[in-house]
Simulated scan of single mutants.
Amino acid sequence: MRELVYYVAVSLDGYIAGPAGEFDAFLSEGDHMAAINERFGDTVPTDIADALGVSRDGGMFDTVLMGWNTYAVGLPFGVVSPYRHLRQIVFSRTRTVTGESLEVTAADPVSTVRALKEQEGAAIWLCGGGALAATLADQIDRLVLKRNPVLFGAGIPLFGPRPYAPERFEEVGTTTFESGVVLSEYVRPAAV
């Protein structure tokens, strides 16, 4: 069965973006970049990967899931299909757009993920945002957090509001880089 992997950059105080969706405070240069891009090259937008020569041959992911706000970051720059090398599914009840390898859907995210997990293929990348992550929390098999050495103070939390219901994940690996970025990976205990 395919895994749903929430792979995301996060501040020390638990935010994946600033209040208006800002993410430029996350470190985009440093010793962590080569190592992370080697393993997670599939998560680099198609045009940026092509320009930087980042390989997407790892085959870790073949599908990316996004909420509308996460997806819409590129629209002001004319980027309609940011991850053309992946199947892109964007969840929105009110908006639509068409693009290469892009599907915008009002379908239930949980039902969609359950159906995707039953299909053949590589892992499914949950790109964001926090509200979608909260909706899909029970479906997440693996968390990969790129903790950046920065405090936001406010913004979009790693998980949007959800009821108090502690769930334990097991750490399967942590790498600390000189840049201060810490890459930590966790899985649900049943998946260990």
Rank of each mutant, 00 (worst) to 15 (best):
L183C: 12
Y71T: 04
P149G: 01
E22G: 15
G153Y: 09
Y6F: 12
A137M: 13
A34I: 11
T46Y: 15
D141G: 07
Y71F: 14
F26Q: 05
F159V: 10
A20F: 08
I156V: 15
N37F: 14
N69T: 13
D62R: 00
T174P: 06
L12A: 11
R168T: 15
D31M: 09
G128K: 08
V54W: 03
G21Q: 05
A123Y: 02
V172T: 12
R93C: 04
E38D: 15
P189M: 02
G67H: 03
L126F: 01
V187K: 09
F77S: 05
R188P: 07
P82N: 09
D62C: 03
V172N: 07
A115D: 09
G155L: 01
V104R: 03
V172S: 05
A72N: 07
V64H: 02
V172W: 08
F177C: 06
T174R: 14
L126W: 02
D13E: 11
V97I: 15
G58M: 04
L27W: 00
L132C: 07
W68G: 00
F152Y: 12
V150S: 02
F169M: 14
E100N: 13
Y186G: 05
Y164D: 13
E185Q: 13
K117P: 01
A165P: 06
T96D: 15
T70H: 10
